[in-house]
Measured scan of single mutants.
Amino acid sequence: MDVFMKGLSKAKEGVVAAAEKTKQGVAEAAGKTKEGVLYVGSKTKEGVVHGVATVAEKTKEQVTNVGGAVVTGVTAVAQKTVEGAGSIAAATGFVKKDQLGKNEEGAPQEGILEDMPVDPDNEAYEMPSEEGYQDYEPEA
């Protein structure tokens, strides 16, 4: 019985440690998101679009440190934060509304985080759909 109880105690310690790591990862992701939003706020009209992409990228980098179902929630929060940063930029006159959601080359930025393969159960990952990809044929 002692062996059984000791095993359960060790398992509990492992769960607590994993929860603490997840909590730490979420806190880091939130900190990076805040950094990115402050970065966007300090940019001029020309830099705002690039700044919004930076927020998304920093958040995406930190999301990889967070495991399990938390990833889905962090990704949703990050996307809403990026959308909010863009709205703030438009409201303050840093950028025109028609410039939001495009990178410096004018290509749409939507789907940055949505296409990231995420499995809350950590069982399997699927690649994003290939609808947006084109076949590449090298020139002879």
Rank of each mutant, 00 (worst) to 15 (best):
Q134C: 04
A30C: 07
S42Y: 09
A69P: 03
I112G: 11
L113K: 14
K80C: 08
S87G: 13
A89M: 07
V26S: 01
V66C: 05
T81G: 05
H50N: 09
E61A: 09
A29G: 04
A90K: 05
Q109A: 02
M5T: 01
E61K: 13
T72Y: 05
G106W: 07
G67Q: 05
G73Y: 14
G101A: 02
L100P: 15
D2P: 02
G47R: 15
D115C: 06
A90L: 11
T92Y: 10
E105V: 09
V63W: 09
A85V: 10
Y133R: 01
V55D: 00
K43H: 08
T59E: 00
V95D: 04
V77A: 09
E110W: 04
M127N: 08
T92R: 04
G101V: 05
A140R: 10
K60I: 07
E105T: 11
T22K: 00
E13T: 05
E130R: 10
K97D: 04
Q109T: 04
G25R: 13
E35A: 09
A85S: 05
K58D: 01
Y39N: 11
T54A: 04
V55M: 13
Q79K: 14
V82F: 06
T22D: 00
P128H: 06
G106I: 11
E130D: 07
Y133W: 08
N122K: 14
L113P: 06
V118L: 08
E61N: 12
G101D: 05
A85M: 09
E61Y: 03
A140M: 08
K21D: 00
F4K: 00
K23C: 08
A91H: 10
T22Q: 00
K102W: 11
Y136Q: 06
Q109K: 13
E123V: 08
S129F: 04
A27R: 12
E123P: 10
I88M: 08
G51T: 15
V48K: 00
V66P: 01
G68T: 08
H50R: 11
E126I: 11
G41Q: 07
D135K: 03
P117L: 07
G132I: 14
V49C: 11
E13Q: 06
E114I: 06
G84V: 15
Q79F: 09
I88G: 02
Q99A: 13
V82K: 11
K43Y: 11
K12E: 00
T75H: 08
V82G: 02
E114W: 12
V63A: 07
V15F: 14
P117G: 14
A107I: 02
T72G: 15
L38Q: 05
A140D: 11
K80L: 11
E35R: 11
V71Q: 05
G36F: 10
V16C: 13
A17Y: 14
G47W: 09
K97V: 13
Q62C: 11
K80D: 01
V3P: 00
D98V: 06
K45Y: 14
G86T: 06
T72I: 06
E46H: 13
G31E: 12
T92V: 12
G68E: 09
P128K: 06
T54Y: 13
E20D: 07
V118M: 08
G68Q: 03
E114Y: 12
D121E: 09
N65Y: 09
A107Y: 05
A53D: 12
Y133C: 07
E130N: 09
M116F: 05
Y125V: 08
E83H: 11
V77F: 06
G68K: 13
V16G: 06
E126S: 04
Y125W: 08
E20N: 07
T54L: 13
A107H: 05
Q62E: 03
A18G: 03
Y125T: 08
D119L: 06
V71D: 01
G73L: 11
V66R: 04
A19L: 15
V16Y: 15
D135F: 05
T75I: 12
L113W: 11
N65A: 04
V3L: 09
A19Y: 13
V55S: 02
Q99N: 15
Q134H: 02
M1C: 00
E28Y: 13
A89W: 13
A17K: 15
K60F: 06
G51N: 04
A56T: 11
G25A: 15
V118P: 10
Y136W: 06
V52L: 09
T59V: 13
K32H: 15
V82W: 15
M1F: 00
T92C: 14
E131V: 13
V16F: 14
N122L: 03
A56M: 12
T75D: 03
E139C: 03
A17N: 11
V40L: 07
Y136R: 14
V77R: 02
E104S: 06
Q134T: 02
L113C: 02
V70P: 01
G84Q: 14
V48G: 01
H50E: 04
E46P: 12
G106R: 06
V37S: 07
K43C: 06
Y133E: 11
Y125L: 11
M116G: 06
K21H: 11
A11H: 01
E104R: 15
G84R: 15
V15L: 15
T54H: 13
K12Y: 03
Y39P: 00
V74G: 01
S87R: 04
V82E: 02
A91G: 06
V74A: 10
V82Q: 05
D121A: 06
K45F: 04
G86F: 14
V26A: 03
A17F: 03
E137Y: 09
I88S: 02
M1D: 00
K12N: 01
G111N: 14
V3H: 06
N65C: 14
G31M: 14
N65I: 11
E35C: 15
P128N: 09
G67F: 04
T33S: 14
A27C: 13
E13W: 07
A53N: 12
A27P: 00
M127F: 05
V49A: 15
V49E: 03
V70A: 03
S9E: 13
K80A: 10
V37E: 00
V74C: 07
T22P: 00
K45H: 01
L100E: 10
K58T: 06
A30V: 07
I112M: 13
V52Q: 01
K10I: 15
N65H: 05
A76I: 12
V26W: 14
K6R: 08
Y125Q: 15
S42F: 11
L100K: 05
E114S: 12
D2Q: 12
D98Q: 04
V66G: 02
E46A: 11
V40T: 02
S129T: 11
V63P: 00
G132C: 10
T64H: 11
Y136F: 06
A140I: 04
K97A: 05
E83T: 08
G31N: 13
T81D: 02
K45C: 06
S87C: 12
T75P: 01
G7L: 11
K96G: 09
N65K: 06
K80F: 03
F94R: 01
M127C: 07
G73H: 06
E20P: 00
D135C: 04
A56I: 12
G51Q: 08
H50F: 14
K97N: 12
G25N: 03
K43A: 13
A11Y: 06
T75R: 05
G86D: 05
E126H: 08
A78K: 13
K96Y: 12
K23P: 00
P138H: 08
V82H: 04
D2H: 13
G47Y: 15
E126G: 13
G73Q: 13
G86R: 08
N65W: 14
M5E: 01
E83C: 08
K10A: 07
T64Q: 09
V70Y: 02
K10R: 11
A29P: 00
K43D: 00
V48R: 01
V26C: 13
V74D: 00
D98S: 05
I88D: 01
M127Q: 14
E61C: 10
D115M: 11
A29D: 00
M5L: 00
P108W: 07
K12F: 11
V49N: 02
V77C: 14
S87W: 13
F94A: 10
K60G: 03
E13I: 02
G86I: 14
L38T: 10
P138E: 05
I112T: 12
V15C: 04
L8Q: 00
V66H: 04
F94K: 06
E123L: 14
K6C: 02
K97W: 10
E126T: 04
Q134W: 05
A91R: 04
E139W: 05
G36P: 01
D119I: 13
A76T: 12
V118H: 14
V66K: 02
K6V: 02
